[in-house]
Design a protein around this nucleic acid. Structure first.
Lengths: 338, 338
DNA sequence: CCATGGCATTACATCGATGTAAATAGTCCG
DNA sequence: CGGACTATTTACATCGATGTAATGCCATGG
């Protein structure tokens, strides 16, 4: 087996020094046209490719970012991942994706760079992480948090205005005359995650409309999957005093709920309205199509990548953490009368 | 900013040589208990973490695998990715995911390790790759192909029996009395991809049943997304002689088709049957639930990871390419009378 | 008491690329 | 033609970890 050519081999082939080859590779300006061409030819002839390990060792950078999400098969994260990859690509970076399954220990590992050894920085979408997990973390590893404001820790944050978004969605349902709106996936206590923020927005909408708040309508779920939505919906409609609308905190929950309702002979939006969050592609093709809060994923990905790369480019002098509020809009589809 | 401690720092702190620290880290057996403990303590005290670039440079391995798929937001690939990550984890590997968007140049880059510089091997799910792209490729980079048999090239292959699977699905529809079955996403010519193999199986089923083959019912699509299924379905049912069943080559196409049919007032399975491929989670919760050919994703992922890692572990003496046929089963749900 | 051999530890070189600083080659001007 | 610069190119050290081979240590046996 022929070993991979090294920069030294190229140098010999081209009759120059290794450093000159390096200069050509890195587009150093003071290289004569003749030498440049000769080196290029040598590179082609030998099929030379930079060895990134060597480069990284020398430069101290990998050019790789870690994107750490709970689950890739939650469509929102897959869609987000693609945007992040595109953005990173545009800036010459590569993305390494990690799944945490929402487990705190894995998220912790991510922020401490344990998983991310090869990585210059991390974009993390936390689920189980506690605020205190971030205090005192090793700030040598730049970090951007997505979704939740896990508060202080010298990390930038990117997310939509969850409170406002939930409030708008709720107001939409109220405007449709719905009065008993359940929050599937909501939370009243526990860490300040998106679930709590959205529940808060929901409550604000009720308050503004002068309606009473019934904590029984806030239904936590074990995970944000189809089946969790289905179970929650089933439970809700078999109550004595069932809801007339479901505000589901993601589209999977919503679609699972719609299906469960269908199985019990209830139809959406005739009997109940359903609204989700995330605007995954499935929501545009489901029966009925799903109303949903669409976060601007492109904006989120772009902001996250840029914040991260900026911080990587300028270690030391970290400016204070940045808070980027990405756009969102409520898309009304069939599931709430659209 | 405090620089990251190096192995040398640990050595000094523990009062031993760098190599001894390395020995401890790598569980070399001949290290006295005392020394081992001292080094461990030093590591903890300093918060030392191996620098993988250095290690890789020395060892020539990264411990990372590349998983290269067309699109992560095609649920099948996201689900597959998770399984691959789990398997790799189990064997101490890390997975780097790349998207190609189905573009040939990106797939080519993948098999030549261009993207995959940091990678010991590649698992590729090709879409546009031609058989000849693999002949004469640099076999220093172990490669496992998924899905299609892109034929010779010294690469292992993992996939289901596409011909058989399509045949079974078709036979199921025939058994239901359907006679004009369209193949959405099918192909009669072009590279020997899964689409052609499945179309072949479909044809075999027709032949076995003594039914004529109508090439007009084989409908290619630009991509395998919801909207492509929707378009194809719309086009099909507005024909003079519309089909009575759709065999869609993935679940996205199928679900998009179901939606389009719904919009034209046709209901599934009363008016038409629809069957998909992949068994993505959405298919279990759609209205109607979707019949589909479920490939054993876990098996596929496991086989792919093991084949790849085995080949990485033993470079040179590559045994001949292995062909692993993963299991599959037809799951009949509401969309075809289940 | 010394040779023998196994275990524990270490010195040194090396993986491949690149920053620094110095050397060499050119160019222009007086 | 020599000096002063500038443009190119190069020598050398270094990033961090680890394989190789050598050394040191200790116990056992003759």
């Amino acid at each position: 087996m022929v070993p991979r050519p090294r920069i030294k081999d190229v140098a010999e082939y081209a009759g120059v020094s290794p450093k000159t080859v390096s200069n050509v590779i890195n587009d150093y300006e003071h290289v004569s046209e003749r030498t440049r061409t000769a080196v290029r030819e040598a590179i082609d002839a030998l099929g030379y490719r930079v060895n990134l390990a060597g480069r990284q060792l020398r430069r101290g950078r990998t050019g790789m970012l870690a994107l750490v999400v709970p689950e890739l098969d939650v469509a929102y994260f897959a869609e987000l991942a693609r945007h992040v990859m595109l953005e990173a690509d545009r800036r010459g970076g590569t993305v390494l994706i990690h799944e945490t399954g929402g487990r705190r220990e894995r998220e912790l590992a991510a922020v401490s760079g344990f998983d991310a050894q090869f990585t210059d920085g991390v974009i993390l979408s936390p689920l189980a992480l506690l605020p205190r997990d971030l205090t005192g973390r090793d700030t040598r590893l730049p970090l951007v948090l997505l979704g939740e404001r896990t508060a202080p820790g010298g990390a930038d944050h990117v997310g939509i205005d969850n409170v406002l978004a939930a409030r708008e969605a709720t107001e939409h349902l109220l405007a449709r005359g719905r009065r008993r709106i359940a929050v599937v996936g909501g939370a009243l206590r526990g860490p300040q995650g998106t679930d709590r923020l959205r529940t808060h927005g929901y409550r604000a909408a009720l308050g503004a409309a002068g309606l009473p708040f019934d904590s029984g309508l806030v239904v936590p779920v074990p995970a944000f999957h189809w089946q969790d939505g289905a179970r929650a919906a089933t439970e809700l409609v078999t109550r004595r005093d069932p809801p007339d609308a479901l505000l589901c905190l993601n589209d999977h929950l919503a679609l699972g709920a719609v299906r469960a309702l269908h199985e019990r002979g209830l139809s959406v939006p005739e009997d109940l309205d359903v609204v989700g969050f995330d605007d995954i592609e499935a929501s545009r093709f489901s029966i009925p199509t799903l109303s949903t809060v669409a976060p601007d994923k492109r904006d989120i990905a772009r902001a996250a990548v840029h914040l991260l790369m900026d911080r990587i480019d300028r270690p030391e002098d970290g400016p204070p953490p940045v808070e980027h509020v990405a756009g969102h809009r409520l898309i009304v589809r069939e599931s709430s009368g659209g």
